[in-house]
């Protein structure tokens, strides 16, 4: 059988066309995404200065700074990680080191996947029902941190699990051969090797938590507070919620636009820092472990 020359050429032309299209679409998508970043940075960078980061909002949040929102987000991130990190790491250890293959392990993994897929507004509803009302914490940093912690939990579990999975089994066997118990092996051998990757997971979770709005709407976030929170039972302001309220509600939406751009810029910078940190950590320690 022979192929006519024109058929072959058509085939080649078609391929070139489709490849070109796929490349154009890919670059187009990346361009759109970069454009969003560029837009936020361009509009926001002029607003952000030392005063913007360290002053209280003024004049109905059309002037001044976003200091209380930054502080609130820091509290919420710290509070949520205080819960999600230990529990998540231990759950990851359970799944990878302790649980035997079988229905129990499958169930635990399925539940982790389910929790990861729950929309963030459901966490908000749940946090309001359980922490704010049932446990009577009220709208508070405690309730908001726990709600955000639940949301971050599957992220920490998954990355810990992946990190532990990548630890070569020979390390474990060597420890057992020297008489190390299971927990001792996990603690002294497996965890130290997996630590950089686990920390990467922690950083990614921090990034996710610092930008979440829906879970804190009813559990902690305040529209405006004249002073910083004094205890974990106080409400606080938070960056993502601040961006939401000043860009959608109130009577001075236009006047507070610069503040909104500045806040969006700070949020984007947090995400950038988090991603860069995670990548650096992974690359730096990734090499070190391999060299050993």
């Amino acid at each position: 059988m022979t192929f006519p020359e024109s058929n072959l050429r058509r085939k080649k032309l078609g391929q070139a066309l489709m490849f070109g299209l796929a490349r154009a679409i890919s670059y187009g998508i990346v361009a759109i995404l970069l454009l969003i970043l560029f837009f936020i940075v361009k509009q926001g960078i002029g607003v952000v200065n030392w005063r913007f980061l360290t002053a209280m909002p003024e004049n109905g949040m059309t002037q001044g700074g976003i200091f209380p929102a930054i502080v609130g987000t820091l509290y919420l991130v710290a509070g949520s990680m205080l819960f999600a990190f230990p529990v998540g790491v231990m759950a990851g250890i359970y799944v990878n080191e302790y649980a035997k293959e079988g229905p129990v392990k499958r169930f635990v993994k399925m539940m982790t996947n389910n929790l990861a897929g729950v929309p963030s507004i459901i966490f908000g509803l749940f946090g309001m029902a359980l922490f704010v009302n049932e446990l009577n914490f009220g709208a508070s940093i405690l309730a908001g941190s726990l709600t955000l912690g639940l949301l971050a939990l599957p992220i920490v579990i998954r990355t810990t699990e992946e990190a532990l999975k990548s630890v070569d089994d020979t390390f474990r066997q060597a420890s057992y051969a020297l008489g190390g118990s299971k927990l001792y092996t996990v603690r002294k051998v497996v965890l130290p090797i997996a630590l950089p990757n686990i920390l990467t997971g922690l950083i990614l979770a921090v990034g996710r938590v610092s930008g979440e709005t829906a879970p804190i709407l009813f559990t902690v976030a305040a529209y405006f507070l004249p002073k910083l929170p004094g205890s974990v039972f106080d409400q606080c302001m938070a960056l993502p919620y601040h961006l939401y309220v000043i860009s959608t509600s109130g009577t001075q939406i236009e006047a507070s636009r610069p503040m909104a751009y500045g806040t969006a810029f700070v949020l984007v910078v947090i995400v950038l820092i988090v991603n860069i940190l995670a990548t650096l950590l992974r690359n730096y320690f990734g090499k070190k472990v391999k060299m050993n």
Binding site: I36, T213, L267, V271
Partner: peptide
């Protein structure tokens, strides 16, 4: 770059 954009908070996309 694509993975980075998965990390941008939804409120920022909403604002954009």
């Amino acid at each position: 770059v694509i993975e980075l954009l998965a990390g941008i908070p939804s409120v920022v996309y909403g604002f954009f």
